[in-house]
């Protein structure tokens, strides 16, 4: 058992409020829901003996809300709660600087509250620290839908050394977008989209899709990875990914949820396996690149863009495996036998 075990929390105040709420009745995870999720996480962390939690600061009210609950008598058994002393820019760098600070403080695990977009920000930043995710975004293919209290247990067992993290973690894949050097990464999907608009970010207009690259494609996925999930399911832990080209005139059709509530029929020109480290040149002249469902970068005609799959993503804590391992290795000797 590690003394003074600590866990980091990343919570994205902006997740789940994008345009998909209007166009597809996208789910609404309110700030108060997020705060309450973190409070439940704290219960799980407390139960496993975590002594200290380091949380990201934000201007969206999450840190403030969590701190307010931590002050209450009902939270007196929680781990000590500290906030990263950071400048708040309202942008992605808030997340990155928080992770760096947590790693310098040797947290035993990092819990991320957010959707695919939030998890993507951690790419290349978490190293050997196990990462567990709580899903709150609009479109979640990367984070599993685990109850925060249980995520707290799993992260707590790993951080305290009650279980061996090698039994319940795996290295996620990632996608890199390169124009000579890597400019962006993705945890789930990279898509090439028509037009030159970044605007509200989220990809919700199916007609604009040209190519999709996927780290994995589960049959029950929602979002762009559902295209692969319907065509050729690909697991999170196998080394390969998928590359799909779309063509509206193609007779091969799939009907998939490209976002929660947004079901579209797409024409498929080709589906091919994406081998690790193979650089795939993008054929489009100009357009917008989206990463994990968010339009992020324009490219103009003449830019040489390529995408490749990497097997060096974050070290993902599999909550189900962690809890199973804990059932085998941790025992409770105190308390009554309820099966009397």
């Amino acid at each position: 058992m590690m003394r003074n075990a600590s866990v980091g929390i990343i919570a994205n105040p902006a997740s789940s409020r994008d345009i998909r709420r209007i166009v597809a009745r996208g789910p609404a995870t309110t700030t108060n829901d997020k705060i309450n999720s973190l409070a439940r996480l704290m219960e799980g962390l407390a139960a496993t003996g975590v002594k200290r939690v380091v949380s990201m600061s934000d201007a969206g009210g999450i840190a403030q809300g969590l701190a307010a609950i931590a002050q209450k008598p009902s939270a007196s058994h929680w781990p000590d709660l500290d906030f990263v002393d950071q400048e708040i820019t309202h942008g992605p760098t808030d997340t990155i600087s928080a992770v760096r600070s947590m790693r310098s403080q040797n947290v035993g695990a990092i819990v991320v509250l957010g959707g695919d977009g939030t998890n993507r920000l951690l790419l290349g930043e978490t190293g050997g620290t196990p990462v567990a995710s709580i899903s709150t975004g609009t479109n979640n293919a990367f984070p599993r839908h685990d109850e925060p209290t249980v995520v707290g247990f799993a992260a707590g067992y790993v951080a305290t050394g009650a279980i061996d993290s090698s039994t319940c973690t795996y290295r996620a894949k990632s996608l890199g977008v390169m124009d000579g050097t890597q400019v962006m990464g993705a945890l789930v999907d990279v898509a090439i989209v028509d037009g030159d608009r970044i605007a509200s970010g989220a990809v919700w207009d199916a007609r604009s899709l040209r190519e999709i690259f996927l780290c994995f494609a589960e049959a029950d996925a929602v979002g762009l990875s559902s295209v692969g999930g319907h065509l050729r399911p690909t697991s999170r832990e196998e080394p390969q990914g998928l590359h799909i080209r779309l063509d509206d005139s193609s007779p091969v059709r799939v009907t998939v949820p490209i976002a929660p509530g947004l079901v579209r029929e797409l024409g498929i020109a080709s589906v091919s396996t994406l081998e690790p480290q193979a650089e795939i040149r993008i054929e489009s002249e100009a357009g917008v690149i989206s990463v994990d469902g968010e339009r992020s970068m324009r490219f103009v005609s003449g830019t040489e863009i390529s995408v490749s799959l990497d097997t060096n993503g974050p070290l993902v804590l599999d909550v189900q495996r962690a809890m199973a391992e804990a059932a085998n290795t941790t025992t409770t000797t105190k308390g009554e036998d309820t099966h009397g």
């Binding site: 409020r17 709420r21 609404a28 700030t31 999450i62 403030q64």
Partner: peptide, 20 residues
């Protein structure tokens, strides 16, 4: 509640927050 987009949800209405 930091976002009024959240408050819309309480009325069953889509609420969006535009950043930046």
């Amino acid at each position: 509640g930091a976002s009024n987009a959240d408050r819309a949800a309480g009325y069953g209405m889509p609420g969006v927050r535009v950043e930046d």
